[in-house]
Design a protein around this nucleic acid. Sequence first.
DNA 1: CTAATAGTGTCTTTAAGACAGTATTGA
DNA 2: TCAATACTGTCTTAAAGACACTATTAG
Lengths: 255, 255
Amino acid sequence: MGDIEVAVSTVIFALRPDRCARGTALWLPLVRRIKEPYAGRWALPGGPVRRDEDVEQAARRTLLETTALAPKYLEQLYTFGQVERAAEPVPGPRVISVVYWALVRPEEAEHGIEDENVGWHLADAPPGLAFDHATIVRYALWRLRTKMEYSRVAQAFLGDTFTLAQLREVYEVVLERTLDPANFRRQMESSGAVEPTGDYLVGGRHRPPRLYRHRETRDLADNGPLTRRQDVVGSRPTSTNPTPTNPTSGSRQTP
Amino acid sequence: MGDIEVAVSTVIFALRPDRCARGTALWLPLVRRIKEPYAGRWALPGGPVRRDEDVEQAARRTLLETTALAPKYLEQLYTFGQVERAAEPVPGPRVISVVYWALVRPEEAEHGIEDENVGWHLADAPPGLAFDHATIVRYALWRLRTKMEYSRVAQAFLGDTFTLAQLREVYEVVLERTLDPANFRRQMESSGAVEPTGDYLVGGRHRPPRLYRHRETRDLADNGPLTRRQDVVGSRPTSTNPTPTNPTSGSRQTP
DNA sequence: CTAATAGTGTCTTTAAGACAGTATTGA
DNA sequence: TCAATACTGTCTTAAAGACACTATTAG
């Protein structure tokens, strides 16, 4: 029964300058596999969950170990639990993967490792990936774009202060369409997601734009009621359940 | 390493008549635990994942075994993977739970088992639950309400044909507020989510309302790109990956 | 007929989008 | 001065909501 391995993988997105086309594009770091199933192919950073660490903690640890990244925004994406997952070239062991997705700021991204085994790739067109990681990346991209429309995730791509033009560029690059600066400004200001610092960004070639900061009314990575960790109302400090172990409903037919 | 158990739990919602207050309320089935951690307490139906079954399949199986329910709408909710999950009364084994949520129609709900160990409870105010199942139920409720606003999940509570008043009642009960019948009608008709069958519901006390059916343009339980299983563009038929097993980025510092 | 629900029409408010116009900087 | 970006104002359109009004049934 304890015959199933649990692993984590993480899809990390960052905005980085792009040589061709427009200035900026969406990138994600990949690591090259060295062991056999898919050896030599690119894959999402990850690894097995240790017995004594939380699953999210495992995601952070493997990320740090393989890419040296420590993203502030980290959220669970989906758990992939099909039986035939490892059955591609070699019928390996049964592995269930809890996949996370992360957003890092440009400065954070710079601290990441880059060598022949760890590198950034365009999120739109990643190279041939191991396992079904291509599907996972596509799903993560869909989640990012969807969440962009109704939340403030875009701010996770930026530093503590930023101009509205920078924030707008995040939206434009991720959603792949241009936005009207005037309307964008109005929306951001009326939504209360940002607030002006009072400072201006000097050194630009033209009129210095106002600087803004995140308005941390709520956490950026919102998982609904999961973020509000300790409830005041309910009971104990909310541990994260181990599920009923086979309840086998005993005596049925009892009104 | 294979020292971790993987289990599933499912939060099932159904609309059922309520004795007090308004006619209908949101209910969910719970099972009574018979084994020791939390023996006697109510818990979500679920159980361990077998080595040879998909995780989703495990959710369906345990649901059928314990409650005799086979919901059409079943979707992954979240995976709970903290270390201290089982550590409440007895420091049990490490268990990671993949939690699903399901919606069942009234007729489906009637087929469910009901005895002293399996019973329906008000989703708003469940009894004292085992583990952190109260948190999970609260989270599932939040997801249901959130998803209700932008998708067509409401239809999963109803049969093949229904009146707009019935559909509106689903929204009203779940969202806990009344909706304007006129505006609701317009929204539903313009969204293209439903289409009139041409028939009318006779036998009512008053003017017979038009019957509608789901417009199955897309799947009800949409998981973004995950539902579109086989891609035509990409490559192979999309298996569901087993994650890279510890890539340990080899030779760093290589430009 | 009345009671009750089904369904339509219309007005107001709000937000999104298009786009013209003004402001402020470096060179 | 000019180019380029920052920022403001205003018009149009679409959707949401409030709510009056008509339609059709059972009894």
